[in-house]
Write a protein that binds this DNA or RNA. Structure first.
Lengths: 192, 192
DNA sequence: CCTATATTTCAGTAAGTTCTGAAACATAGG
DNA sequence: CCTATGTTTCAGAACTTACTGAAATATAGG
């Protein structure tokens, strides 16, 4: 009886350890990826932790698991909430706040894509348009036909075409639900 | 006659100034965008300069135009060549080296996408697969059915599905020519 | 109102990155 | 072989970003 309990506990602990190793592996890789996409390592790691554990984590959980200070945890959690890819979660009767990740990866991607489109792609398109206006015949008169001006115009057009197509693709992803996205992806993969 | 020449020169100089303003605008914006996508500002600016001028630039051109040191210019130009989005260009009878940007934006994007897929997305997929293996029934026995393990598996699967679809889309873009890409994009945009 | 607990803020510091400038290197042409 | 011209490298400086730890703030519950 006693022996059985011990064995069961060992088994359980073995599984938990393995689970922890799996989580650590995932968290590390996610953090590394975040960095190269312009999200800082710690924020990416916190998000990975919330996502992979599939359970609300409190500030102390995050601090202990990732070995970071309270200040850092607090600020990074807030930033992730601002992005909208984790949410505050209140446990009844508990004082402290918990945080949980969205569970749908497609939804997270949509949120991130929307924000990056707005902050980084839209301004580029705007700049291209502005540059084109600056080279308009109205502004430049006959000189608008000079080879240098024409060459610049061609370059601006090449970039504009690319950016506006990319922008449309992003916009489509953003405005679609999971189901819609699946359809899109299916169509796309068949066409390729 | 003399007067006419002067007027012509003034006009020309006006156009050149305007062209320079356009280029500066484009370069600035491109540099800003690069930063948030994990490419440093200077490298992005050098690339923008080569692209928008549509003419081979030498090291001194780059240094003067962007106000950077010779060392920085040299190293950044090399890095851009390594990426493959600008190329060395030898002018007959000239000692110094020039650099020109690829002219096709879609081709540049393909090159960048290929590299980022290889360096950042493939490792994540690999890690997910590894994590899944670590939670296999073979490794964990009966405990593989515990709720915690099942929840983790579901999260890994969600991420795997997303990453492998994204990966396929990237792969398709990478392996296609300009014409192929256009077709893909058309199909996609119609489906949305 | 007070205490215990939880959270946020922020000045200072650590870590990381980008850049400069000068020296070393490379080479074409005399 | 020497000089003139151009390129690369790299140690250290300048700058930027991320993090800590402690103090300030907030608030539930007695």
């Amino acid at each position: 009886m006693v022996v059985e309990t011990v064995v069961a506990e060992q088994k359980k602990s073995g599984v938990e350890e393995q689970l922890k190793r799996v989580q650590d592996e995932f968290i590390r890789r996610w953090g590394e990826m975040g960095q190269t996409w312009g999200i800082n390592r710690t924020m990416a790691e916190i998000h990975a932790l919330c996502y992979i554990t599939a359970a609300p984590q409190c500030t102390d959980d995050v601090m202990e698991r990732l070995n970071i200070s309270r200040g850092n945890a607090s600020m990074s959690l807030r930033a992730l909430c601002d992005w909208g890819i984790i949410r505050r979660y209140h446990k009844r009767g508990e004082r402290r706040e918990y945080f949980e990740s969205l569970s749908d990866v497609w939804e997270m991607f949509s949120i991130i894509a929307a924000e990056r489109k707005r902050r980084e792609m839209d301004p580029v398109l705007e700049t291209i348009k502005k540059c084109q206006a600056m080279l308009d015949e109205n502004n430049l008169g006959a000189a608008a036909k000079s080879e240098a001006v024409l060459a610049t115009r061609r370059r601006l057009e090449g970039m504009e075409e690319f950016m506006s197509v990319t922008n449309k693709i992003f916009a489509a992803f953003i405005s679609n639900t999971r189901a819609g996205l699946n359809k899109v992806v299916k169509v796309l993969l068949k066409a390729l």
